[in-house]
Design a protein around this nucleic acid. Structure first.
Lengths: 263, 263
DNA sequence: TAATAAATGTCGTTT
DNA sequence: AAACGACGTTTATTA
């Protein structure tokens, strides 16, 4: 334990010496804690590309899965980082605290060197909370499979994620007249790119020119240029919002629950 | 000033009460500081999609440009975030500290609610250090423009980033026989997608079927399926690594420096 | 504002 | 391991 006398799981050092920071970081990393370091530092990266960040004050995270990131006082994205699976090595010499993050894959090295430290936090984070993302494209697909009528009355799905030459058809089915129908789903306004994607899938099924095949693009709306392209290619559009799909799924789950408790 | 008596720029609170944390965060955000909060929290997001993160201990960053991110003890990517330009609102009630991050664009809301705090850091980070990235696609282009022979002996660039219907041709030039030559550059193994991109550019210049035009794809290597497609479309490939380009640029800069000091 | 392409993209899945 | 597509992709650039 880091502080057996207090029983606390976290260790916070406010403006520690390099020596104290070094010991805390080294111990923290070896014990698979999450380490936050704030201080004046410079950063070198060598790998798929290479980079150099001149000195300045930043927030650096070292996580126990081997991922790490260097955050400047602005921007959403870290200026430098290393994905999970990397290995840490901490060193202190010549009034410089150096953390090297090595990643076997791509032979990548990230080196952060501090010459002054404002904060070190060694954190033992307990986090098992579930994460739910709703209204994803997957949700939209599940909603259409569960209630095919929202696409069109009489539509019957046959398969989903059907592998074809260019990729995967989201849903393959037949309409009320038994005409083969390809469904491509987008959770955002469908772009020309989405139209072309559906067209590529269509091409696979239109080897026989006599056989009728329908292609329906499902999305909350059509993006600007997409309408014209869609029409010229003889494809169709059905507006369905991800939110609506999310609610359909929710109502199905609620129904399943109530059925369960009634049974 | 946060702590006028000490003159320190940063304020570190180790396991503060919700009330103390609330005041520090509210003040810090309003004064455009960088705020780090570690504690037990749950997170809701509503926008292009929606999400729910159940309670757990996380590291949350609030930056003065309006960006924010929620980091779990593992993974490179934040589990939830908000890009720059968002607006913070901090509230305390019913033993819950709530920070709402609102983004006008896409009408997105991120809400982080804490019920216990392990650390609050209000940071006044001074960071003006320059960031240099090497071996980017831009570097590759500059290297070819500076030493066209690395593409092919006798190649002469005419323009770069030439705007054409589908986008921008990386480099437009002529070969030793004055044949118009289009160059598309990729820093990673060139995929079929890159081949198609070059093909689209080629189409613009082949209105006149009699006029010869060459298309050269520059990349460290060709991805699996790309070779066949390239050949079938009559396009060419030249292997150049981003690293090599980076070194060419470096040597040019060194030369320019030595010339400067000799003069 | 819309469109297009780049990114050390990352991440999951499937071959 | 390689390939392929999705992502709340984000970001920059330009018409």
């Amino acid at each position: 334990l880091l502080e057996p006398e207090t029983g606390r799981r976290n260790k916070i050092l406010d403006a520690p010496s390099l020596e104290k920071a070094y010991r805390a970081i080294k111990t923290g990393v070896s014990r698979h804690k999450t380490v936050v370091v704030v201080g004046n530092c410079w950063v070198d990266y060598e790998g798929r590309a290479s980079s150099r960040l001149e000195p300045g004050e930043r927030i650096v995270l070292f996580k126990s899965d081997g991922s790490s990131m260097v955050h400047r006082p602005r921007d959403y994205a870290p200026v430098n980082w290393q994905p999970p699976g990397s290995i840490f090595r901490t060193r202190l010499r010549d009034d410089e605290l150096n953390v090297r993050v090595f990643r076997r894959k791509d032979n990548e090295v990230l080196e952060v060197t501090f010459d002054s430290i404002a904060l070190v936090a060694i954190l033992d984070l307990k986090d098992s909370g579930a994460f739910y993302l709703y209204a994803s494209e997957e949700d939209m697909k599940q909603a259409i499979l569960a209630q095919p009528d929202i696409l069109e009355e009489g539509f019957r799905p046959i398969t989903s994620e059907k592998p074809v030459a260019p990729g995967f058809i989201d849903i393959l089915g037949v309409d009320r007249n038994n005409v083969l129908t390809l469904v491509e789903i987008k959770r955002k306004p469908a772009t020309k790119e989405a139209v072309l994607q559906l067209k590529r899938y269509m091409d696979v099924f239109t080897i026989d020119e006599n056989r009728e095949v329908r292609g329906i693009l499902v999305a909350p709306e059509l993006a600007r240029g997409a309408q014209k392209m869609l029409a010229s290619l003889g494809l169709e559009f059905k507006s369905i919002s991800p939110q609506r799909c999310s609610e359909i799924l929710k109502s199905i789950k609620t129904k399943q629950l109530s059925d369960f408790f009634q049974a």
